[in-house]
């Protein structure tokens, strides 16, 4: 008797869930299901209403994981793209990616898209396709607010500069500014800690990442970004190589988001809190998706 009652409840639940699921699918299909069946990421988004998106988990302001929640500018950009592909926030599965595993994750299909401070360069273009860039970063320096003698990379001689082991910014300091003393750690958070304690004079990486650290509440007012970028790092959205139609679709979404204010809103809600005004998305620089 008890068993059959449990069964009845379960069946009821399953029915209710199935029903609501069917309704959700139906209404979503109405808005995005125009045109012939698509392939690639766009096709998957239309058919399953789900996307797996690779993001960074340790970059304040860009992609930061707290508990099971992810937040930051990359996350907001990913949400905009997913929404216009017909995938709600509940349909996004966030996946933490790190710098070395991004290409492999895309190639193996572990993730559909990568929005993870992903600099577009020729070597990476051989393995994945890029949409975007949605932001153009540049390597910059983070110093204490009262520091007046570090005004740019040329003032680094004899100074202690901190970056992360194996990163591109660290390499650039080693080759282009060999007179600077380079302190390496395994994470930027340690660099920022060392800067706060005064054991290094500057922290270097992409300006947008530095702005993210400067915007963290515990460092408010203590650090400033020098503001003289000495490299160009266009951040793109990575997807499977050859998925040209999806790439073009994402570029169209970015263009639309830039004109209707969603891009600025995404910035203001995340990195804008550092006091940096929202950049304008230069749609003429978008990749040709080749």
């Amino acid at each position: 008797m008890r068993l059959s009652r449990t069964l009845a409840v379960l069946t009821g639940l399953a029915l209710a869930l199935g029903f609501s699921g069917a309704c959700g699918g139906g209404s979503g299909g109405g808005s995005g299901g125009s045109g012939p069946a698509q392939t690639g990421v766009v096709g998957k988004a239309q058919q399953s209403r789900k996307l797996v998106i690779g993001v960074k988990a340790d970059q304040p302001g860009l992609g930061l994981q707290t508990g099971s929640r992810y937040e930051g500018f990359d996350i907001e950009i990913a949400k905009i793209v997913a929404k216009d592909l017909g995938v709600d926030e509940s349909g996004i599965e966030w996946k933490t990616t790190t710098t070395p595993n991004r290409e492999a994750f895309i190639q193996q299909g572990t993730v559909d898209l990568v929005v993870a401070t992903y600099t577009i360069n020729d070597e990476r273009k051989k393995k994945v396709s890029f949409a975007g860039p949605y932001y153009v970063a540049g390597q910059d320096l983070l110093v204490k607010t009262d520091n007046a003698d570090i005004t740019g990379p040329e003032a680094l001689d004899g100074k202690k500069v901190c970056s992360v082991t194996g990163s591109t910014p660290a390499k650039r300091i080693q080759t282009e500014h060999p007179k600077a003393h380079l302190q390496l750690f395994d994470a930027y958070s340690k660099c920022v800690e060392a800067l706060g304690q005064g054991s290094v004079d500057a922290v270097t990486t992409d300006d947008i990442i530095l702005a993210g650290y400067a915007a963290q509440p515990q460092f408010a007012g203590k650090f400033k970004v020098v503001g003289k970028p000495f490299s160009t790092e266009p951040y793109g959205i990575g997807l499977k190589k050859g998925d040209k139609s999806s790439c073009e679709k994402i570029n169209a979404i970015l263009t639309a988001a830039a004109s209707d204010g969603r891009y600025k809103a995404a910035w203001d809600a995340t990195l804008g809190r550092s006091g940096k005004p929202a950049p304008t998305l230069d749609t003429s620089k978008l990749t040709s998706c080749e």
Partner: peptide, 23 residues
């Protein structure tokens, strides 16, 4: 390596970062 001595694990990370195709 976590405090900046370029021992083998750090160098391995660096090489993997530079050569994503040969992890």
């Amino acid at each position: 390596g976590t405090i900046g001595v370029l021992e083998s694990a750090s160098v391995m990370r660096q090489l993997i970062n530079d050569n994503g195709d040969a992890v």
